[in-house]
């Protein structure tokens, strides 16, 4: 379980969520994104291709992260949500709040 941060050739910060995004580690993700924003990163992709499940605390952390990035004038994209993960966003209507792409490649192309 953890977060893997890289930067792609066009300067987008990519954070991969490996394992779960739940109450026990959401703060770590928030701090990681906060640090990236403070460094001046403005295009951020969070990829869930290697994520098992997300709980409501994890969804809440993504809402806070989205707000933080928006306030800084940046853009956030999400990608790699399988059918089950995507259903959480649809049930909570958060699919209307986030820009969600099927794959990281599609998300990167949309910046």
């Amino acid at each position: 379980m953890g977060f893997h941060e890289t930067k792609n050739a066009s300067g987008v910060t990519v954070v991969q969520v490996e394992g779960q995004l739940i109450v026990g580690n959401r703060q770590e993700l928030k701090e990681l994104i906060q640090a990236a924003v403070e460094r001046g990163e403005r295009r951020i992709l969070i990829d869930f291709s290697r994520t098992g499940y997300i709980d409501s605390s994890g969804l809440g952390a993504l809402v806070s992260i989205s707000k933080r990035i928006r306030e800084a004038g940046g853009e956030l994209r999400l990608s790699g949500l399988n059918e089950d993960l995507r259903s959480l966003f649809e049930l909570t209507k958060l699919d209307t709040l986030f820009a969600i792409a099927d794959t990281p490649q599609q998300a990167l192309a949309s910046f």
Binding site: S56, L88, T92, K93
Partner: peptide
Amino acid sequence: EPIRPEQLDEANGRGLYLIRKL
């Protein structure tokens, strides 16, 4: 219920709702 448009930006309050849905 946490799905009203004005509540979408809230960080909390989705847990019980999700349980009921799942």
